[in-house]
Write a protein that binds this DNA or RNA. Structure first.
Lengths: 123, 123
DNA sequence: CCTTGCCTTAGAGTCAACTCTAAGGTGTAT
DNA sequence: ATACACCTTAGAGTTGACTCTAAGGCAAGG
């Protein structure tokens, strides 16, 4: 018998709130979460991986709308694997660009820090 | 005589909308923008640099509330240079951490892309 | 003189992504 | 048996950062 989790345990395993999990289910980022005899949600190990994956997509700036698309393709089964791969490859490009841009900003911040040091010496 | 810009020119120079510039002035991210005879805002070269700086802070995830703090210190003059430098150094750490985290996510995305390729071969 | 395209203000509306509330049910400990 | 911590739902409220609207003024072209 596989271990299952209730919503609060799940939330703490994934670093989100129970509210967020309910919300994600409502907007179909989570599908097929079934209930126990009391109507409580039963989460499984596989859900942990999926939710953490969603959190990483979010951390890289993917909007929920795009995750919904991805989730819908996933729901449709393995024949959408190529399409999902393409989405990920597109997103990969964006993340790489974002990293580049952040690196540029780091340079700018360093420059500003140096300028402030100069002002401190003068003032 | 120094060249001045009207709000729309300024907006296009900085890659924002005129609405945003008015909003930034309202919340004191922009201070001391004075008006011409018609009451129109007069922007200067120095404002371009400042607004671009704000855009870069934003791009690195700094919330407007924190930029407001920074802008207030700047308004107070050179004796706040050290405090501003500290803010920038703190923020620099966060940006560096963000880049690290994005790099980790890139690895995860690559792993997922590979898994989808496998599914494509099998399906 | 009239249209067009700027500009002004105060304040309302939008959007994403939660976040919380109300009203009620369940399960365990004292 | 009653307090407590959990769970459910539908739906309302919040936050951050804009974005737009209404009502009106200035200035050049036809």
């Amino acid at each position: 018998m596989e271990k299952t989790f209730r919503i609060k345990q799940m939330a703490s395993l994934c670093g989100v709130t129970a509210h967020t999990l309910r919300y994600y289910e409502k907007i179909n980022l989570l599908v097929g979460i079934n209930r126990d005899a009391n109507g409580y949600r039963c989460f499984h190990e596989a859900d942990v991986e999926w939710i953490r994956f969603l959190q990483q997509l979010k951390a890289t700036g993917m909007p929920l709308a795009q995750m919904q698309q991805f989730a819908e393709l996933r729901r449709q089964g393995d024949h959408t694997a190529a399409e999902r791969r393409e989405m990920l490859e597109q997103h990969r490009l964006q993340v790489a660009a974002q990293i580049e841009s952040l690196n540029d900003c780091l340079g700018m911040i360093d420059f500003k820090i140096e300028r402030h040091r100069q002002k401190e010496r003068q003032g």
